[in-house]
Simulated assay, not measured.
Amino acid sequence: MKRNFTVRRGALDGVEAFLSVARHRSFRKAAAELGVTPSAMSQAVRALELRVGAALFIRTTRNVGLSEAGERFHARARPAFEELIAASDVARDLGQRPSGLLRLTVPRAVVPILLEPLIASFSKAYPEVEVEIAVSEGLVDLAAGGFDAGVRMGQFIAPDMIAVRLAPPFPFVVVGSPKYLRRRGTPEQIDDLRQHACIRIRRSNGTIAPWSFVSGNKPIEAIVSGPLIAYDFPTMLGAALEGMGLAQVPSPIATGPVKAGKLLQVLQPFAPMTPGVFLYYPSRHQMMPKLRAFVDHVKHRSATNHDARLQPDDRRARSTKKR
C-alpha cells in the first residue's frame, strides 16, 4: 500500500512557539522572545495541540512543564526545527555572496583551450565557489541536468538563453598529417574527398554529421566516409595526427599541431565560419551570486584579452573615437 508522505498544510505552524515555551518553561518569556503577545503564544500552542491530538504542556498557575506527549514531541521536533533553520541559513548565504557549487556542462575540446585558464583565475578570485565541469558533447537541458551554465558553439544555443562570448568566430578546418597527405595526395576540391579517408563525428542525436563547407556564399554539405567515427573533436584530431585520415575540426584545437608541422590544412578556401564559443545560461532573474560572479569574471577577462590584443595605435584610435 502506497503511503502519503505529503506534509499537511499548516503542520509546522506553532512549532517555533512550542519550542520557545519548552525552552523557557514560560509563555510570557517565549512571547517576549518571539515578539508576540502571551495570548497569541497560547493560541498558537493550543492550535498545535489540537492538530497533534494531545496536550503538550502541563500548565499550573505558577509553572509550565512538558507532558509525556510533549517530551516525545520535543525530542523529535527540536533537532528537526534546528535543521530547517540551518537549511534556511545555508540557502540565504548562497543567495547573498558567491559560494557553493557551480556546475558547468562543456564540450571536451573547450576545456584545455578556454576553461582551464579561466577556471584557474576564477577559483583564485572566488575561493568559496567550487567548480564542477561535466564534459558532454550533446546539448544539455541546464535545468533538468542541474547545471548553472553551459558552454557551446553559438549556432547550437537556444534563442531563449543568455549568451556571453568566450571566443571570437573561427573556421572549421580540414587537416591531415604530412605522412597521410604524401600517401593519399592533397585534395584541391570538395569532390576530391570521395577518394580520401575522412574521420567523422556522431552527433548526440545519433546521426553522423556531414562535413560543412562554403563555396562563395553558398553552404555545401558533403557526405564523407572513412575508418573512424568519433564522439568528440579531440578524438578526431588525435586520429588525424596518427595518419588515419582527414578530420574537420574547429580551428582553435588544430592551431598547435598545425604550427608544429604535425598537421597541414587543406581545402582552406572552402572553410566555413562559426559564430564562436559562448557561455550560456537562463534568465538573469534566476541568477545566483556564484553564477553572476563567474559571468562577470568571463566578461572582464574577455575585455582584458581584447585590449591586450590591440596595438598601441589601435588603442589611441579607439580612445579618440570615444572622446
Rank of each mutant, 00 (worst) to 15 (best):
V224D: 11
T274D: 14
V64P: 09
E242W: 00
I162Y: 11
L181D: 14
A77M: 10
G238P: 02
I85Y: 14
Q286L: 11
P269Y: 08
D296N: 02
R97P: 12
A80L: 15
T61W: 15
D148E: 13
M41Q: 07
N217D: 10
E130F: 06
M161Y: 09
F18H: 02
A239P: 06
D232G: 04
L56Y: 03
G70E: 05
F278D: 02
Q43M: 00
G216Y: 15
L241G: 03
Q248T: 04
H196P: 06
R309Y: 08
V15I: 14
K322G: 04
G256S: 11
R59L: 11
G14D: 01
F170A: 15
F147S: 07
A144Q: 07
L114H: 14
R309P: 08
K259P: 11
R28P: 09
S39W: 06
A44R: 04
Q96K: 09
K290N: 10
L263I: 10
M273Q: 05
K2T: 04
A247L: 03
R25M: 07
A77C: 05
S177F: 12
V111D: 04
F270P: 15
P252A: 12
L264F: 15
D296A: 02
L104I: 06
R284V: 12
R28T: 15
R165V: 09
R182V: 12
A11S: 14
L115E: 09
G176D: 12
R315L: 12
A77Q: 05
L279P: 02
V111T: 10
A47T: 03
N4H: 06
L66E: 00
M273A: 10
F122D: 01
P117H: 13
L237G: 03
R183Q: 11
P79V: 12
I201S: 11
A239I: 02
F5C: 00
K262V: 02
F57G: 00
D89R: 15
P38M: 14
S302E: 11
A303G: 05
L241C: 07
P98Q: 01
M288Y: 04
P178F: 13
F57Y: 05
A120G: 07
V36N: 01
E16I: 14
Q96A: 09
A308E: 10
P269S: 13
L56V: 00
M1T: 09
K29F: 08
G256W: 08
F270C: 12
